[in-house]
């Protein structure tokens, strides 16, 4: 007998360990669900971690209202499939009652408004741990993130004062009113995620696969045409065969030309790709440390 695990099994086992650790160390966790492949993976692993019992925490979707319609259809089906409970925090509703103010202009996005809505939802639900699908390979500020990431009572991250994390010993102790963000798939890369989802035959949103869609170029990035994005006069809409590499809200998710129609095609494409998946995220491009700055404020 050869007692070796391949890298996907080892990553799976690490993530399951973290998810169980969350259930053991916290009173009221919640799993942040965006409808993208990473949160699909985390919720799938959560289902596995507590089998045959149901996962002991609900899913929370912060809904900007500016979604690809496919995302919501998929979300509702997936939640039923894995037998989870779904909570929704609505950005539209927060705008209506004045918690946040809508950005104006061509590049307006509700991405930044999500932080306030998320923090409010965590506070209202008295959640003490929010499980997320962030990965360290995504972005340079995330490369320094812990599995168990402490947030103060304002939901802020202090990157220079993080708790050291050693072996498999996780410190989830906190004062009243503070919470943790937990990232069970920290050590997965984009390619690992795809390989694993393929191996496990997990159903995925159609947006990830090549399809015909009306698109236009903005600042070198291909964007999906949507009623939520006002176009500049010079921006011309054309139909192309594209797919999403990440799924966020319509206003900040770039699409790219691709003919990858199956998950095997996607793996080939990702393995050969010379651009990072967040290369299509306009929200990261606002400055060199855009992600760190947003994370400090309490972003995902």
């Amino acid at each position: 007998m050869n007692y070796r695990l391949n890298h996907l099994r080892e990553l799976e086992s690490e993530s399951i360990f973290i998810l169980r650790e969350v259930a053991a160390q916290f009173d009221n966790p919640v799993l942040l669900f965006s409808g993208g492949k990473d949160s699909i993976l985390v919720s799938y692993l959560a289902k596995k971690a507590f089998y045959p019992a149901r996962m002991p925490f609900p899913l929370l979707h912060i809904d900007t209202g500016h979604n690809f319609t496919e995302t919501i259809d998929y979300r509702d089906r997936w939640v039923k499939d894995i037998g989870a409970r779904l909570l929704i925090g609505s950005v539209q509703e927060a705008i209506d009652r004045g918690l946040v103010t809508e950005e104006k202009g061509y590049n307006a996005s509700r991405n930044f408004l999500q932080t306030a809505v998320l923090l409010e939802a965590l506070e209202k639900g008295k959640f003490d741990a929010a499980i997320g699908g962030a990965r360290r390979d995504e972005e340079k500020a995330r490369a320094k993130e812990r599995f168990f990431s402490h947030r103060d009572e304002f939901g802020q991250w202090d990157p220079k004062n993080q708790r050291p994390e050693l072996w498999n010993l996780f410190n989830g102790r906190k004062h009243f009113g503070e919470h943790f963000r937990v990232f069970p798939i920290s050590n997965w890369t984009e390619l690992d995620v795809w390989q694993y989802l393929a191996q496990e035959h997990v159903p995925l949103p159609g947006l990830y696969f090549a399809h015909r869609r009306k698109v236009f170029f903005r600042d070198g990035i291909l964007m999906a045409d949507s009623e939520f994005i006002p176009k500049r006069p010079e921006e011309k809409v054309a139909e192309m065969t594209v797919r999403c590499r990440t799924i966020g809200d319509v206003t900040c998710t770039g699409v790219w030309e691709s003919i990858a129609a199956t998950i095997e095609d996607i793996i080939e494409e990702v393995a050969a790709s010379r651009k990072t998946e967040r290369g299509g995220r306009t929200d990261d491009k606002r400055s060199e440390t855009a992600m760190e700055d947003r994370k400090k404020d309490g972003y995902f």
Partner: peptide, 20 residues
């Protein structure tokens, strides 16, 4: 590898960074 704002400013590595 130097991801945090303070690290870029000072040209040093402050924290453990994970690379893949």
């Amino acid at each position: 590898t130097d991801g945090l704002r303070a690290e870029r400013e000072q040209g040093i590595t402050i924290d453990v960074a994970y690379r893949y």
